[in-house]
Design a protein around this nucleic acid. Structure first.
Length: 484
RNA sequence: GGCGAAGUGGCCGAGUGGUUAGGCAGAGGUCUGCAAAACCUUGUACAGCGGUUCGAAUCCGCUCUUCGCCUCCA
């Protein structure tokens, strides 16, 4: 079975064939580090995390690059705006380097909690100024860029394919809708900045052949992608809102410089909305991950994200998170049962489930269907375990292995094999284990004496502090509820 | 205005020219001292109007609505 990926450039699902057999180069647009990560970041990076995990599962050697943007993105127009990081530095009364370092660490903290695997290379834009300057020089030399008064612009007219990703190919027609003609020395209004001369008081600036200044918005991704992955890469991922202008500009400057295709498969993930409206930092409706994690297990967020397709919008609400919490808990319970089940006699055939799971993932990373397979399997396994004959030890081990592979290794929504589910945060606390044993013992005595008032009191009081007791055929078990 | 995506049962959310998506919530039941969990049963959806077809929610057209991009944004 082959992997098919929806290519935003061709707008069709295409069979995935990397440039070099067995190797995959992938570049994903990283965050601009001037604020804490929000749910939108979670959707994006969880989605691409699963992409990378699946590619590795399929035994590709994956080289994954995800940049950190710590300079260059302006708050407003190319000619008028302020660097967002510099602005945040001003607000926080510190300098830009501290801002980018602080929020970079914050970003990784959140991603680690989401179990998003780190990229192989995480290059910072400010650490690759020479590479960006070299790219600009190349574009000037080939006639695709021009310098005016210390600023360098890419000439859109020199690259006829400009706008092919977003479908904005007729530059002149596009100008009709422009509200205000900007004061600018650009030759064509659609030309975009490759290098900007620093104004008075600008903190982040570097020497260049043209001026003391800073690189343009789109340059870093091209420069760093080519440096670490080569002139043609297999997959470039990012948010849909970046198709234009960011990715179209990347294509233009990269392909103009090398004469080669820049990206073989463009992947764009969709937005997170809140009450149907896009979540965005500038819209001030963004849901901060650090706040979310105070009340919600990060794995629930992963599960929530993966329950919809990466190309679909995902609407955030309290009730949706609650539904996800309950749904994920069901899978965890099944995993627990599998791990703790006593061997029976009936064989259980796992193959159809594995096939369905594989087909779903191979079909443009269809995680909602993959999860549905896990739920179907969960139901079948539970039903089998409910029957007196149970399942054989071999079947049990196969099921455990599949839950481990699919749920933990690939989707990252279930705890590690061997780790006691639901208790992972308290497992190391041996005193708590001891206390729980005492309480469960006392409760068992109460129940034997038919003192249900006491036994229920123990159960209810424990539940009120977030520990749930369940009486099952296999005996009593307890778990720390996620999020409590 | 231009470019693009989408409208699915109470909610979330996949998919498909004719066969149960899945989850959550609800109802009934089994089990349990009671709960919880699990399992069984139950809902029979696809914006509207035309068209193509033996057959469309799935293809085509039109209408309505929503969302994203066209300023930085995952």
């Amino acid at each position: 079975m082959s992997l098919f990926i929806y290519n935003s450039l061709s707008r069709t699902k295409e069979k995935f064939e990397p440039l070099h057999p067995g190797m995959v180069s992938i570049y994903v647009c990283g965050p601009t580090v001037y604020g804490h990560a929000h749910l939108g970041h979670a959707k994006s990076y969880v989605s691409f995390d699963v992409v990378v995990r699946w590619l590795r599962y399929k035994e590709y050697h994956v080289k994954y690059v995800q940049n950190i943007t710590d300079v260059g993105h302006l708050t407003d127009d190319a000619d008028e705006g302020e660097d967002k990081i510099a602005k945040q530095a001003r607000i926080e009364k510190t300098d830009p380097m501290e801002i980018s370092q602080f929020y970079t660490r914050s970003f990784y903290e959140d991603m680690d909690r989401l179990d998003v695997l780190r990229a192989n290379i995480a290059p910072a834009a400010t650490a690759h100024i020479p590479e960006q300057i070299a790219l600009v020089e190349k574009l000037i030399a080939t006639g695709h860029a021009y310098e005016i008064q210390g600023n360098v612009y890419f000439s859109v007219e020199s690259f006829p394919d400009y706008g092919k990703l977003s479908g904005r190919t007729d530059q002149d027609a596009l100008q009709s809708g422009v509200r205000i003609e900007m004061r600018s020395d650009k030759r064509h209004p659609s030309d975009f900045a490759l290098w900007k001369k620093a104004e008075e008081g600008h903190l982040m600036k570097w020497n260049s052949p043209w001026s003391v200044g800073y690189p343009g918005w789109h340059l870093e991704c091209s420069a760093m992608s080519m440096k670490y992955l080569g002139e043609t890469i297999d997959i470039h991922g990012g948010g849909m809102e970046n198709k234009f202008p960011h990715h179209d500009c990347e294509i233009a400057q990269s392909e103009a410089a090398t004469g080669k295709p820049y990206v073989r498969y463009w992947m764009h993930n969709n937005m997170v909305t809140v009450n149907g409206v896009k979540m965005g930092k500038s819209l001030k409706n963004s849901v901060n991950l650090k706040d979310v994690f105070k009340e919600t297990d990060p794995r629930v967020i992963r599960f929530f994200v993966l329950q919809s397709h990466y190309r679909s919008q995902l609407d955030y609400s309290e009730s949706a998170i609650k539904a996800s919490t309950t749904g994920l808990e069901k899978l965890r319970e099944t995993q627990r049962r599998i791990l703790e089940a006593k061997p029976g006699s009936a064989a259980f055939n796992l193959e159809p489930f594995i096939d369905r799971f594989t087909n779903a993932m191979d079909d443009d990373f269809n995680t909602p269907v993959a999860l549905a397979v896990l739920f179907d399997l969960s139901k079948s396994i539970n039903a089998a375990l409910d029957r007196n004959e149970g399942i054989t030890e071999e079947s049990r081990q196969q099921a455990a292995a599949f839950f481990q592979t699919a749920g933990t290794d690939l989707l990252g929504i279930l705890p590690l094999h061997g780790q006691t589910i639901g208790r992972d945060t308290v497992q190391t606390n041996k005193k708590l284990d001891g206390i729980m044993n005492i309480l469960l013992e006392l409760r068992a005595e109460a129940r034997n004496n038919k003192d249900f008032a006491l036994s229920d009191k123990i159960r209810d009081r424990l539940l009120s502090v977030g520990i749930e007791i369940k009486d099952t055929k296999e005996g009593v078990n307890w778990s720390s509820k996620p999020g409590v």
